[in-house]
Simulated assay, not measured.
Amino acid sequence: MSRPLTATIDLSALRHNYALARRLHGGKVLAILKANGYGHGAVRCAEALAGIADGFGVAAIEEAIQLREAGVQGPILLLEGWFEPAELALIERYELWTALHSLEQIDDIEAAELTRPLTVWVKIDSGMHRLGLAPADFRQAHARLLASGKVGRIVAMTHFSRADELDCATTPQQHACFVETLADLPVETSLCNSGGILGWPALHGDWGRAGVMLYGGTAADRLLPDWPRPVMNFDSRIIAVRELAAGEPIGYGGGFVTERPTRVGVVACGYADGYPRVAPAGTPVLIDGQRGRLIGRVSMDMLTVDLNDHPAAGVGTPVRLWGEDLPACEVAAAAGTIDYELFCNVKRAAFVYHD
């Protein structure tokens, strides 16, 4: 028997979420597969979206090559662009789209020996202050790229820093900066990540970039009748049961002490598997489908749960760590993080895919 920790990936839910993203956005939408499909398995997710997605987005070229060598067709955008000029040859070879975020990268294109024109997404810094050209530099960049003869298509893109905050003025301000920067230039546009797709329908451009919403994660404080469905069920089982008297410490540091006689379930999952070590006592779990709680400090390979309200639970009882009926965002909030991080950190689990 193998260790009873599984990440079950519902590919039909993934397809549902992509269709929802595309319907809400109204234009074309890239399915973002960076960080191994947010921990869900980039290749399997790309295969599930084949023939449905308008294209895919990854962080860097090694992620794109993995998809191409697995047989994934269609556009793949490098969201961080290239890191060395030599990568432009690989971008051409694997027929990739690429972001561009500095004037120095235009020098790379002008010096490159290319046999076919590139598709370049020019990133404009409208207020995120991470990657991107200063708005005042965009027109110069646009003109140089066209004059190089090595760029066949330009998409202007930006990234909203606070799209998940629907009562915040930052997103409209960034949008206004972006629109003013483009003025009358006839270029395609991409503005919205998941938060923008879900929360800012008036600001959608030609291309959306659906990331965490594809996987059922939270991206905006907006309730929808057809909310993105959870794609990952992260499940384990109880491997031991302890009967402790009141006043007994549990786990490393003894930070949790039983207040009454307590049945404790030991679950095969810990921070080495991606469960957050900082999750406090009281973090929710599902014990055989019923709400329960974490007690004691999370260890590398195990965590402990309170079985007092679960008299039928014992060795072998299933425990859901997040997924259907227990949103990852709820677990993440208890641990002071976000569901993105939970998804991306999952490892040492058996991945099971179904439609």
Rank of each mutant, 00 (worst) to 15 (best):
G253I: 02
R263M: 03
L303N: 01
R153Y: 06
F178R: 01
G27Q: 07
L214I: 07
G195E: 00
E188T: 03
A70M: 12
P75Q: 04
R93N: 12
S194T: 04
R153E: 10
E80H: 06
E87I: 07
L198G: 00
L166P: 00
I250E: 00
I9L: 10
R130C: 09
P225G: 08
L191M: 15
A281W: 09
A48K: 03
A335D: 05
L198F: 10
G255P: 04
H159E: 02
G253L: 02
P318W: 00
V315E: 14
T115P: 07
N36P: 15
I154Y: 00
R23D: 04
E324L: 10
C192V: 01
I109D: 02
V305S: 05
E84D: 14
R130F: 09
S299A: 15
Y38S: 13
P135H: 03
A89S: 13
P249L: 07
K347A: 14
L49M: 09
V305L: 08
E330W: 09
L326V: 03
H129Q: 15
A31G: 07
T337V: 06
T304N: 12
H204R: 15
A31D: 05
A220C: 10
I287G: 02
F256H: 05
H204A: 12
P276R: 09
I32N: 05
C168G: 06
W200A: 01
A279V: 10
G152N: 03
L294K: 03
A272Y: 11
M302A: 13
L182A: 02
P117N: 12
P117S: 13
S126F: 07
A245S: 14
C269I: 04
G37Y: 09
L114F: 08
P228V: 00
T304D: 08
C177K: 08
W207K: 04
P327W: 03
C168L: 11
I52Q: 14
Y18L: 01
A59Q: 08
T262C: 01
G55R: 08
Q173Y: 08
A31K: 07
D221Q: 13
R297I: 07
E330Q: 15
I250Y: 02
G127M: 09
A219N: 05
D339V: 02
T262Q: 01
P186D: 01
E248G: 04
A111N: 15
G71T: 09
I9T: 01
G251T: 02
I197V: 07
I106H: 06
K34G: 12
G74H: 04
R3H: 12
T258W: 01
G55Q: 08
P172R: 10
Y18I: 01
G55E: 06
G205D: 06
K34T: 11
A48E: 06
H101G: 11
P172E: 10
R130S: 10
T337N: 04
T304W: 11
H204T: 08
G195K: 00
L11F: 04
L78E: 00
Y18F: 05
A313Q: 06
L88S: 00
A35K: 08
S299T: 10
Y340W: 10
L146E: 14
G71Q: 11
H129W: 13
A332N: 03
L96W: 13
A312N: 10
K28S: 09
M302L: 15
S12I: 09
R297Q: 14
L33A: 04
K123R: 15
T6Y: 05
Y340R: 12
K150M: 12
A349F: 03
E243V: 10
G289W: 08
Q140N: 13
D108G: 14
C45F: 07
P85Q: 06
P261V: 05
R116K: 15
